[in-house]
Amino acid sequence: MSDTPAGRRPPEFGGERLLVVGTGAIAVMYLPFWLNWLTTAYRDLEVQVVLTTSAERFVSGEALSVLVRREVVPDRWPEEARPDALHVRLTEWSDSVVVYPACVNFISRLALGLADTPALLTLQCTSAPIAVAPSLPPGALDNPILQRHLATLAERRNVVVSPVQAVPSLTTGRRDAAGAPPLSTLIAMLEELRVSLSGEGSPAAEAV
């Protein structure tokens, strides 16, 4: 495990196959930087990226494929028939998941139990640890409906929702948007959850 680009040691992470879901928050345009950091910091980590249709407006799947050395999966059902189900393949492949960044629409659909895309169905079915990083426009965090959706996600035993930080809105210029934390912060939260879930399944935990 190597140093981060800033010279700091990355957090410990014991996952081997990480599924990264990028959604339509404009902050997804920074995903190439963070994937470069991820693949540099954890050289043995396998990374699979899924991009929602709205995310594809802000970032190139081809560029991300180069960074993770694996074809990016678009978050839509294949037009041609396949012998396997995409969501099952993603569920069985990944041992941990990050939604980075998570836009209002994706958060809401995930919290409501919707499963009309491969990424959503994967996240509804997996028992792997999931870390969700909200990235919200000005005013969204004050919406009680969104607050309930975030609380609903946090109630799932295998989901952790990161805190947001005040960031400048690209539209207003004011620090009134709620941005996702650095991916390194999310990885640390994901590892804590991963270890906790692993402990629940250990013989010692079952004996308690």
Score class of each variant (00 low, 15 high):
Asn143Glu: 12
Ala133Ile: 07
Leu183Arg: 05
Arg9Phe: 02
Asp142Ala: 15
Pro11Asp: 01
Asp142His: 13
Pro11Thr: 07
Leu197Val: 04
Pro74Lys: 00
Ala85His: 10
Ala115Asn: 00
Ser96Met: 04
Leu35Asp: 03
Ser2Thr: 04
Pro181Phe: 04
Leu51Glu: 10
Arg175Trp: 05
Ala154Trp: 03
Ala188Phe: 01
Leu67Phe: 05
Val132Gly: 05
Asp3Ala: 14
Leu193Cys: 10
Leu170Asn: 14
Ser169Lys: 07
Glu92His: 13
Leu45Phe: 00
Tyr100Arg: 02
Glu92Arg: 09
Val97Lys: 09
Ala41Met: 12
Val98Asn: 13
Ala166Asp: 10
Glu62Cys: 03
Tyr30His: 15
Pro203Gln: 03
Val72Lys: 08
Pro137Asp: 11
Ala154Phe: 11
Leu35Gly: 03
Ala188His: 11
Leu197Cys: 05
Arg57His: 14
Pro5Leu: 12
Ala85Cys: 13
Tyr30Glu: 14
Gln165Thr: 13
Arg156Ala: 06
Leu120Asp: 10
Trp37Leu: 01
Ala151Ser: 11
Ala140Ser: 11
Gly199Ile: 10
Ala151Trp: 03
Asp3Cys: 08
Asp84Asn: 09
Leu186Gly: 09
Arg89Gln: 12
Pro118Asp: 00
Trp34Pro: 10
Glu192Gly: 11
Ala204Pro: 03
Leu110Gly: 05
Ala180Trp: 02
Val73Glu: 06
Leu146Lys: 13
Ser54Pro: 00
Glu200Gly: 06
Thr172Gln: 06
Ile145Ala: 15
Arg175Gly: 03
Arg57Glu: 12
Pro11Asn: 07
Ala177Pro: 02
Ser54Lys: 09
Asp44Arg: 07
His87Ala: 00
Val159Met: 06
Pro74Arg: 10
Gly199Phe: 08
Arg175Gln: 05
Val99His: 08
Arg17Met: 01
Glu155Asp: 13
Ala140Pro: 10
His87Val: 01
Phe13Asn: 02
Leu183Ser: 09
Gly7Arg: 02
Leu51Trp: 13
Leu150Phe: 01
Leu183Phe: 02
Asn158Thr: 04
Trp93Leu: 08
Phe13Met: 05
Glu155Tyr: 08
Gln165Ile: 15
Ala133Arg: 09
Ala119Tyr: 07
